[in-house]
């Protein structure tokens, strides 16, 4: 394992980077103009947060890499995002369900991270939390609106939940990197945040008339980098081709 602090910062930055890029794929093709703008704004916030996390990761690493170098010059096996965020967009409902599941976790995690003993990490958490609070407000409304909507929208949201729920467990897995962060007072225990997450999830799903899958089976391997899904490579090919074809290109 490389420096656990570097690993931890890559996890934070890669989650927001990969999800931000995924969400930006909607730009110009969302169902209505307001949603298009909302998705683009959400992506923008996430990419902004990525810059903060990955620049900090580069500083900690001390090899002269900045956020751009980390985002555009690493390949799949060096990414540390959870599998949930690299899953394809699917339809609008699936994108919103993925965002909702991530937002609930993200808000809880950032709230705890504000108490980090690492001042810069606490500052990025404090800054991000304000934006994420807005993200969650919107995705909660949308999941309820579509879940408790027409028969068609309800079925699609249930299908999205069934498909994505197996990726929730990984958000709460605790491993060696987490142990090191907890011991240093830098980051919270992810496993300890599960109960609060479940409380929000259950309340929203009830209102959305959706049913949580019974199995708690969880796909894992993204945050450790051991086994990403096949989707990440395709996404990176699209995201990185310009920097790979024309290294150091600027505009």
């Amino acid at each position: 394992m490389s420096d656990p602090l570097f690993e931890f910062l890559c996890r934070m930055g890669d989650n927001t980077l990969v999800l931000g890029h995924r969400v930006s794929e909607w730009c110009g093709v969302a169902p209505v103009l307001e949603e298009d703008i909302a998705l683009a704004n959400t992506a923008l916030d996430l990419i902004g947060q990525t810059t903060l996390w990955l620049n900090l990761a580069g500083e900690v690493e001390g090899k002269g890499r900045d956020a751009d170098a980390l985002a555009f010059r690493r390949d799949v096996w060096d990414f540390r995002n959870v599998l949930l965020v690299e899953q394809p967009n699917g339809d609008f409902g699936q994108t919103m369900m993925r965002q909702f599941l991530f937002d609930v976790w993200h808000k809880g995690y950032l709230t705890a991270l504000q108490d980090s003993k690492h001042d810069q990490i606490a500052a990025v958490a404090e800054k991000s939390l304000k934006e994420v609070t807005y993200h969650l407000e919107r995705t909660m409304d949308t999941v309820i609106g579509l879940g408790d909507g027409t028969e068609e929208s309800h079925n699609r949201m249930q299908k999205a939940l069934d498909k994505l729920y197996p990726y929730v467990g990984e958000l709460f897995v605790r491993d060696d990197v987490d142990d090191a962060m907890i011991a240093a007072g830098i980051a919270p225990d992810p496993a300890a945040l599960r109960a609060d997450f479940d409380a929000v999830l259950d309340a929203v799903l009830r209102e959305a008339t959706l049913t949580k899958p019974e199995s708690d089976f969880a796909h894992k391997g993204g945050k450790s980098g051991q086994r990403h899904s096949e989707h990440l490579g395709h996404m990176l090919a699209q995201m990185q081709w310009l920097q790979r074809t024309y290294p150091d290109a600027t505009w």
């Binding site: 307001e34 949603e35 703008i37 909302a38 683009a40 959400t42 923008l44 916030d45 407000e137 919107r138």
Partner: peptide, 13 residues
Amino acid sequence: RISQFGSTPCKAQ
């Protein structure tokens, strides 16, 4: 409210 997001990150519609 039309939307929580607007023409710039700081605005809603």
